[in-house]
């Protein structure tokens, strides 16, 4: 299996607080990788390192490397906007723009300079179909996205991402504001998307990690305690700390 991303000895400091400690981990191509661990252990921070969203926070210092297809994304020469088009992100709370549904979906294309109506229309349809929204939304493309129910908003955010054809999709607790039925739907969708995309998901929900992921990493206090195939990690962890967390004795 190819490594899409390879994280090597990554340290991250928020001011003087070290949130990630020498984290190393692979992300395999077209697999789902889950990051689990108790609240505050650095899962979101690690995820946001992969598309350099942490750059937006002042006072962040990062050392170490994260290779995307073998190229360090923390190189000085990295085109950060280009990186974020390749490594897209779905946030914890659905955050559609206060624009019509259609404009949300084609936003990434407009930003990239695409203005051809036909291309935009086709991409919008394709992306909405891929996020299983087309049938519900095709007749109200010009209504405001904010008026949709939360689960549709979240899948709209996914569609908006798929429109720019990323290679990697980062998801930070994408189901935390959704009900169980909507959650199941997103999980099913992830398994479908896995055919074309590499997915990294942060989740608090261990059943979810077990259900959807191929690989899992267990983090604690900024360290990657154990990383491996989800099957192994959940049934036969090699670290005592992981076992305690999985069996619910802690966290």
């Amino acid at each position: 299996m190819d490594q899409k991303i390879e994280i090597k000895d990554l340290d991250l400091f928020y001011g003087s607080f070290q949130a990630l400690k020498a984290v190393s981990m692979p992300v395999y191509d077209r697999q789902i990788t889950a990051l689990i661990g108790p609240s505050g252990c650095g899962k979101s921070t690690l995820l946001r390192c992969l598309n350099r969203m942490n750059d937006l926070i002042s006072e962040v210092r990062i050392t170490g490397r994260a290779l995307l297809d073998g190229v360090n994304i923390y190189d000085r020469s990295t085109d950060v906007e280009g990186l974020r088009k390749r490594v897209g992100m779905v946030f914890q709370r659905p955050n559609p723009f206060p624009l019509p549904i259609y404009e949300n979906v084609v936003y990434g294309l407009r930003v990239a300079g695409e203005n051809d109506k036909k291309t935009l229309d086709q991409t919008a349809e394709k992306s909405l179909k891929a996020a299983w929204l087309w049938d519900q939304l095709k007749d109200k493309l010009h209504q405001p996205a904010i008026s949709l129910p939360l689960d549709q908003q979240q899948r709209l955010c996914l569609a908006r991402l798929l429109a720019v054809e990323p290679e990697v999709i980062l998801m930070d607790e994408p189901c935390s504001s959704l009900d169980p039925i909507a959650t199941a739907k997103v999980e099913e969708l992830m398994l479908e998307l896995k055919k074309d995309y590499t997915i990294v998901i942060v989740t608090h929900n261990m059943q979810q990690a077990a259900r959807v992921s191929d690989f899992s990493g267990y983090m604690l206090l900024g360290e990657m305690i154990e990383f491996g195939e989800t099957k192994t990690l959940f049934t036969n962890p090699s670290q005592k700390l992981t076992e305690d967390y999985i069996t619910g004795r802690f966290g």
Binding site: N51, M53, L56, E81, G82, L83, R84, K85, G88, M89, F91, R93, N95, P96, F97, P98, Y107, G108, V111, A112, C157, R160, L161, V164
Partner: peptide, 17 residues
């Protein structure tokens, strides 16, 4: 909301866009 800004930047938009 900060989340609008983040959502846009995460799609590869520049600050100005």
């Amino acid at each position: 909301p900060k989340s609008y800004r983040e959502g846009s930047l995460a799609l590869g938009a520049t600050v100005w866009q």
